[in-house]
Amino acid sequence: MCLGNPGRILDPRDDRGLPVGTVDFGGVRREVCLAYVDEQVQPGDYVVVHVGFAISKVDEEEARRTFAILKEMSQLEELDWIGEVADRSLDEMERPLS
């Protein structure tokens, strides 16, 4: 029950005084309560959903930024990796890397 998923808000609306909306999870659509995020979300925004409730808005800019940093690190790491492996003595090479 604790496993939350990011999904995209399609149509925020009101259900007897409660903000709700359909959220698309990569093709699977669910009715979700938006009461806790309604002041900060619009159609098209991504939210993290737990047991039918959006508990936070996914910060798209932050998601992109984190990913870009990681990507860059991975490329740098590839260079370090090659250098490291070339310099390494044989017994150190036996240590499993991945």
Binding site: N5, P6, R8, F25, G26, Y46, V58, A63, F67, L70, K71, M73, S74, E77, E78, D80, W81, E84, R95, L97, S98
Partner: peptide, 23 residues
């Protein structure tokens, strides 16, 4: 799906593993 698949990238995972080991 956006914001899921990016964070399952094997190349990134491998780089992070190497970094943890080196630290």
């Amino acid at each position: 799906m956006r914001y899921l698949s990016e964070y399952r990238d094997p190349a990134l995972a491998k780089a992070l593993l190497a970094r943890i080991r080196s630290v």
